[in-house]
């Protein structure tokens, strides 16, 4: 359970960027959370209001895009989305796959005024 400290890190980064843009308000931020990032969407959503309370971002909404585990198969070249974190091509059942999505934990954009 480190989502509160992650939310605080996020608040610091967003505040620094918003100040750089001379924004008076950040209405929303959009972030990506990958299935393999080790970050839980629910608990981040739960912690975000605690981290923003009484800060510049007190009224900021958080929009979280969940990125599924995405693999590209080295045998059949199919891009598939394995279930249950099994590292397995859903098309041909090969385990010889490259992970192309699911590790991200990133700030994608923000709406400012």
């Amino acid at each position: 359970m480190h989502e509160l400290s992650l939310a605080q890190t996020l608040v610091e980064s967003v505040t620094a960027l918003a100040k750089k843009e001379n924004a008076t308000k950040v209405s929303s931020i959009t972030i990506s959370v990958g299935a393999l990032s080790g970050v839980s969407k629910d608990s981040l959503e739960f912690c975000f209001p605690m981290a923003t309370k009484d800060t510049f971002l007190a009224s900021t909404k958080i929009i979280i895009n969940e990125i599924p585990l995405t693999t590209v198969c080295s045998e059949c070249e199919a891009t598939t989305y394995p279930n249950n974190y099994y590292i397995l091509c859903q098309n041909c059942q090969s385990t010889n796959v490259r992970i192309t999505g699911g590790k991200e934990f990133s700030l994608v954009s923000m709406e400012v005024e």
Binding site: E21, S106, L107, V108, S109, M110, V112, E113
Partner: peptide, 15 residues
């Protein structure tokens, strides 16, 4: 107008 979207793409654990 007064609203703008800033695209960022930065890792939150960058530091």
């Amino acid at each position: 107008a007064s609203q703008k979207t800033i695209k960022i793409e930065t890792d939150i654990l960058d530091k």
